[in-house]
């Protein structure tokens, strides 16, 4: 059985949202939706899982915090304790108030940068990466819904999409 890809184009986000709900209700699998801007509620309508990037950010931030604590303890207390301005570095606890600003900055640094790097990797975004949107208009004012289906269901799907207010339908076999 060969898979058919149907691309339905819309020019309005509300029409698209209704179409997504309708197509899902008829038990078709929406492979992808390309939109020029974030359409709120689309991820829920498509049944996408929640993003876990916020959790990774927390973990990265915690790693940053631990790294900062380790780094300053090693440099100021263990490796070369110095007596600066009559205030010797004897223990981490005694010095810790002056370590707070950098502990905070390092936590933010790690949380922000590593989360963004994770996002870029997961969404496959990097310089020289080729764009994969099916039509250049999908970054301007059009929305494309991609549905994979079997050849025999194509007719039914096409008429369903036609009833959702799509401005054009394209099909390719895979």
């Amino acid at each position: 059985m060969s898979q058919i890809i149907i691309q339905a184009t819309y020019d309005d986000d509300d029409v698209l949202m209704n179409a997504v709900k309708k197509v899902r209700a008829e038990n078709f699998t929406i492979k992808e939706v390309y939109t020029p801007f974030p359409v709120h509620g689309l991820d829920v309508a498509m049944g996408l899982k929640k993003s876990r990037l916020a959790i990774t950010s927390f973990i990265y931030g915690f790693i940053g915090l631990c790294f900062a604590v380790w780094m300053m303890n090693y440099m100021m207390i263990d490796d070369w304790p110095q007596d600066i301005g009559g205030k010797p570095s004897f223990s981490f606890a005694e010095n810790s108030p002056s370590f707070i600003p950098i502990i905070f900055e390092m936590s933010v640094y790690f949380a922000a940068h590593l989360m963004v790097i994770t996002f870029y990797m997961r969404s496959k975004l990097w310089p020289f990466k080729k764009a994969e949107n099916p039509h250049p208009k999908t970054t301007d004012d059009q929305f494309v819904m991609e549905i994979y289906t079997e050849a025999e269901k194509q007719e039914a799907l096409s008429s369903l999409i036609a009833s959702t207010g799509s401005i054009s339908i394209q099909s390719n076999s895979q």
């Binding site: 939706v33 974030p38 990037l53 989360m115 996002f119 969404s123 310089p127 020289f128 990466k129």
Partner: peptide, 26 residues
């Protein structure tokens, strides 16, 4: 080159919004 191959997938937008919110919080 500058756009890093942005394609505007629904999942990308979902992550984009989450990242924006967390970055704002940070």
């Amino acid at each position: 080159l500058l756009s890093f191959g942005w394609s505007g997938r629904a999942k990308d937008w979902q992550r984009f919004e989450e990242v924006s919110l967390v970055l704002a919080g940070l």
